[in-house]
C-alpha cells in the first residue's frame, strides 16, 4: 500500500518529463528543415510577393526596399506583353496535349504490366528508364533523332514523306518538345497508377466475375471508380509539371524560345525577364501569375473529381 503510493507520483512526473522531452525532441528533429525552409523558401516568397509590386532591377544602386512601388503595373505590363501571351499560349497548348496523352499511355502501360503477362518487372523497369533521364539529355537525343538527316526523317522517307527540319520550323518545334515530355515522364505516372491498381481488392473482380461482367465492364465499373483518387493525383501532378516546362524548351532554342517564339514558355519568359533583362519586379509578377494559374487548375480539378478525393 505504502509502496504503491510512493511510486504513483513518481510515475506521473516521469510521464510529464517524457512528454516535455518529446516536445523538445520534436522541435530538434524538425529544426534543420525549418531553418532552411525559412531562409530559402518563406523569406524569398515574401520578398517575391513584395517585388512583384515594385519596379526593381538587380543592377539598381538602391536596395529593393527603397525601390518604387508600382502596384499592379508589373502584372499589367506582363499580361499585355505579346511575348508573354505567346508563352502562355504555348504552355497551355503544351499542357492540354501532354497531360492527357501521357496519362492515357501511363494508365494503359500500368494495366499491361499489371495484367497476367510474363516479364512484368522487366517491362516495368524498361518503361521507367526514360523518366530517370535528364531533360537536357532527352532534348539532345530528340534533336539527334529528329534532325534533317536523322533517323526519323530517313525512316519516313522510306514511305515517300519529305524530310522536315522539325526543330527549326515554328510549326513542328513545339510538338517535338511535347513528344519528348510525354516519352520521358510516362514512366512516373505508370508507377503511381500501378500502386493504385494493386490496392484494388481482388475480391471486387472476383465478385464481378461471378456476376458475369465483361473485361470492359470490370474496367469501367471497378477499375476506374476505384482508381479515381490516383487519377486525380496524376492529373494534378502532371498539369503542374506541364505548366513549369523549361529545360527542353531552353535546350532546343538555346534559351531564346525560337524559332519565332514558338518554343517560348512561361518559365522561360520568367527567367529571361529576371536574369537577362534584370526586371526583377516583372519576373516576380510572372511567377505569381504562374502560381495563380496552377492553383486555379488544382482547385478546378478537385471540383471536377468531387469532394471525396482529398489530397
Amino acid at each position: 500500500m505504502l509502496q504503491a503510493q510512493k511510486t504513483a507520483p513518481n510515475k506521473s512526473s516521469g510521464m510529464k518529463s517524457l512528454a516535455r522531452r518529446e516536445k523538445i525532441d520534436g522541435w530538434l528533429f524538425i529544426a534543420p528543415f525549418m531553418i532552411l525552409c525559412l531562409i530559402f523558401f518563406v523569406g524569398p516568397l515574401l520578398v517575391a510577393f513584395m517585388l512583384s509590386f515594385k519596379e526593381y532591377s538587380f543592377l539598381d544602386s538602391n536596395t529593393m526596399f527603397q525601390a518604387k512601388w508600382v502596384w499592379f503595373q508589373n502584372y499589367i505590363d506582363v499580361l499585355k506583353n505579346p511575348t508573354f501571351r505567346k508563352a502562355l499560349w504555348n504552355t497551355t497548348r503544351y499542357s492540354v496535349f501532354v497531360a492527357p496523352i501521357q496519362l492515357v499511355i501511363a494508365l494503359l502501360l500500368a494495366l499491361v504490366v499489371n495484367g497476367g503477362i510474363k516479364g512484368k518487372s522487366f517491362f516495368r523497369t524498361v518503361y521507367y528508364i526514360p523518366t530517370q533521364t535528364s531533360a537536357v539529355a532527352v532534348a539532345v537525343i530528340f534533336m539527334f533523332l529528329f534532325k534533317q538527316d536523322g533517323i526519323f526523317n530517313k525512316f519516313t522517307s522510306l514511305f515517300g514523306i519529305q524530310p522536315h527540319n522539325f526543330l527549326t520550323e515554328p510549326k513542328t518545334a513545339l510538338p517535338v518538345i511535347m513528344s519528348m515530355a510525354i516519352w520521358s515522364s510516362v514512366g512516373l505516372y505508370m508507377v503511381i497508377f500501378l500502386a493504385g491498381l494493386q490496392d484494388i481488392p481482388d475480391s471486387l473482380y472476383e465478385a464481378a466475375g461471378i456476376d458475369g461482367a465483361s473485361n470492359w465492364q470490370r474496367f469501367r465499373y471497378i477499375t476506374i471508380p476505384m482508381l479515381k483518387p490516383t487519377i486525380f493525383l496524376n492529373v494534378v501532378v502532371s498539369m503542374i509539371g506541364c505548366f513549369q516546362v523549361y529545360d527542353q524548351a531552353y535546350v532546343v532554342s538555346q534559351g531564346n524560345g525560337g524559332p519565332l517564339d514558338s518554343t517560348m514558355t512561361v518559365v522561360l519568359y520568367l527567367t529571361r525577364t529576371g536574369f537577362r533583362e534584370f526586371k526583377m519586379g516583372q519576373a516576380c509578377a510572372t511567377a505569381f501569375i504562374l502560381f495563380v494559374i496552377i492553383f486555379a487548375l488544382t482547385i478546378a480539378q478537385k471540383k471536377l473529381f468531387g469532394e471525396e478525393t482529398s489530397m
Binding site: G43, P44, L45, V47, A48, L51, Q244, L270, A287, L290
Partner: peptide, 20 residues
Amino acid sequence: LAMMMVPGQVVMVPTYMLLS
C-alpha cells in the same frame, strides 16, 4: 502542404538575390 502548391520558380528571383 500549402507550400507544396507553390511552384519553385516563384522564389527563384529573391533566392538568387539572397545567394548573390
